[in-house]
């Protein structure tokens, strides 16, 4: 833990943020999935209407707006038809839907894979690169400042209320502190909360990520998944996974194709998608599919082409071996075609 603190301190002081654009470490490490916890344990963020009318409050508000309508960043940072809120229900507040409060409290996090401590801001940069098929805004950009401020606000409000400090205002913190994340030594929590939630516990908040789904009895099948898709999903996501768009506004997200998340995004993993789908789909209903159907439809969805993995440098096999040792179809042959060979352009920004 001491070593980690030192690393963190060093990162803070010398700021490794700038290197984010020059290399592309595998930041999309699999989202940790745990068994579902009792709902009473989840953090419940405060009502958006309580965001103060201050400079800090305005950053929080902007973060919310960017989160639900990410298309305002289209062409600059966002290269597809996705909005953050497509995969994080209730504008990132909902437990078991990869809530921002759960992620915020889990960073900075040390990753064995790139031997680096990633800050929360850097984690969000990964979302832009992969899930949004775009180019990450700089850490000190208004967009990243806003998104991290919003995440912090959700987490802190939820924590204060959970620990019976409903009347305590959410402390306003500097951008630098907020961008590190809630697991940093320098992140100050009220004493009672700090005592109840030591640093090593903060990345395990109940409701973080998508709840783990038991393996299906049968190996996930693209063919069975197609049937599930047509029966259940196509009404909102379209016959060819293109989503639904009206008057230039993409209301339902594309699940594959050029407007979708790319081959580096966490959601391209069959298991992550199965966890998400089982718990969160259909919208407003949640858990409707059987365990097997969720796995099958996740396989079907993720067997289609999407934008290229931005880490791809021309050798599909090499990229697969380096970054795709997990449950997914990248580099594998489906219906006679190697998935990833016909991928759409990555970083589709102007």
């Amino acid at each position: 833990m001491k070593t980690l603190s030192l690393i963190l301190g060093a990162s803070l002081l010398f700021s490794t943020f700038a290197s984010a654009e020059t290399n592309l470490p595998d930041r999309q490490t699999e989202l940790p999935a745990h068994a579902k916890a009792a709902s009473t344990e989840y953090l419940v963020p405060r009502d958006l209407a309580t965001i103060p009318n201050t400079e800090f409050g305005n950053k929080v508000k902007q973060g919310y707006s960017l989160f639900v309508n990410s298309q305002t960043m289209r062409g600059q940072y966002v290269g597809n038809e996705q909005n953050c809120a497509n995969c994080h229900m209730q504008a990132g507040m909902k437990a078991n839907s990869a809530p921002l409060w759960g992620a915020f409290m889990a960073y900075p996090a040390y990753r064995k894979k790139n031997d680096k401590v990633n800050t929360y801001a850097e984690r969000i940069q990964g979302c832009f690169k992969y899930s949004m098929n775009g180019v990450a805004p700089a850490v000190d950009s208004p967009e990243l400042v806003a998104l991290t401020a919003y995440s912090y606000w959700l987490a802190m409000g939820g924590l204060l209320d959970k620990y019976d400090m409903q009347s305590t205002q959410i402390p306003e913190m500097s951008d630098a502190v907020v961008q590190l994340g809630g697991k940093a030594d320098s992140f100050v929590l009220p004493e009672t909360i700090a005592a109840a939630l030591p640093i090593e516990q903060r990345n395990k908040l109940a409701g973080r990520g998508y709840p783990k789904l038991a393996k299906s009895a049968q190996t996930p099948s693209i063919e069975r998944g197609e049937i599930v898709y047509k029966q259940t999903c196509s009404t909102c996501h379209g016959d060819s996974g293109q989503g639904l768009k009206q008057d230039g506004v993409q209301s339902f997200p594309p699940l594959w194709g050029k407007g979708s998340f790319n081959w580096g995004a966490g959601m391209h993993r069959v298991n992550t998608a199965a966890f998400f789908i089982y718990e969160n789909m259909p919208l407003g209903k949640s858990i409707q599919l059987s365990n097997q159907q969720a796995w099958d439809v996740a396989a079907f969805m993720n067997s289609h082409e999407r934008p290229q993995d931005p880490r791809f440098t021309g050798d599909l096999k090499a990229n697969q071996e380096q970054y795709h040792n997990h449950q997914g179809y990248y580099g594998k042959t489906v219906n006679g075609k190697v998935v990833g060979e016909n991928a759409f352009p990555a970083e589709a920004v102007d």
Binding site: Y64, S65, L66, F67, V68, N69, T72, V249
Partner: peptide
């Protein structure tokens, strides 16, 4: 009005 255009809605 799109989602996100207004944050404080009473």
């Amino acid at each position: 009005e799109k989602r996100g255009d207004n944050v404080i809605i009473t």
